[in-house]
Design a protein around this nucleic acid. Structure first.
Lengths: 117, 117
DNA sequence: CAGTTATTTAACTGTTTGGTTTTATACGCC
DNA sequence: GGCGTATAAAACCAAACAGTTAAATAACTG
């Protein structure tokens, strides 16, 4: 059941530690131990988080002597942005307008999703 | 370990079935059975997915006789958009520019993330 | 080569997740 | 009240997840 790119990206982003790591990396490349420092968590735990981020394509790992520096790669976030864009009108439309619209639709048990906007 | 809003939103979005449900709901309110139809999956399974989406605030559930119609609520997506916005410059900046920048930073083992851009 | 440092892998554990089937609830209808 | 339909809840299960500690790997250093 091959999970697609968005699956990996979204689930990588679903963890606060990983988002914090990304925030940290937004300030610049760092080593694993340094990334681990702010979290009360073992090294291997952070290492695993990094692997998840790497699988999602959100970080790139280098080789600097015994360090494997991590750097942010925001390209996948662009994909997220594109996916989100699809729903933009739904949060831009005022709430009341939306609810009103929904009431209309639900009264005639619409099934093929004909969109009367 | 109370998961925060973004945790719930991102993990709700991390499943393809749930994203498909949202896409479906973007076309209009529907019943649970109708939502379930396109997926080869039991009713209760869909019901659980809906609960996840509801917990993330992405859907609103109504009461219409024995139906519990679902409708999209995109407000949480706005939060995601706002979070993403934080990283915008990273995907807008050309890749080469980013890597170049990272090399600079990593050569002086920067730890406090002083951002020289 | 032996020692130190940085990081990963392995093995294990408890919890969450995504699915199942079976049972319960809620409502409308006769 | 009893039946059919729509949905949720319960109980269960296997796989994935997030963490742990201990051992392995890789690179520099003396």
């Amino acid at each position: 059941m091959t999970p697609n790119r968005l699956d990996n990206i979204f689930s990588a982003l679903a963890d606060p530690t990983r988002r914090a790591i990304l925030a940290r990396l937004a300030l610049g490349t760092t080593s694993v131990t340094e990334l681990a420092e702010p979290f009360r968590m073992s090294g291997p735990a952070v290492s695993k988080h990094l692997k998840v981020l790497e699988r999602a394509g959100l970080i790139i790992r280098g080789r600097e002597a015994q360090w494997r520096p991590c750097s942010l790669d925001a390209a996948p976030l662009k994909e997220v942005r594109d996916w989100l864009e699809h729903y933009r009108r739904f949060w831009e439309t005022s709430f009341d307008r939306l609810e009103e619209y929904l009431q209309e639709v639900q009264t005639n048990g619409d099934s093929d999703g004909t969109d009367q906007r």
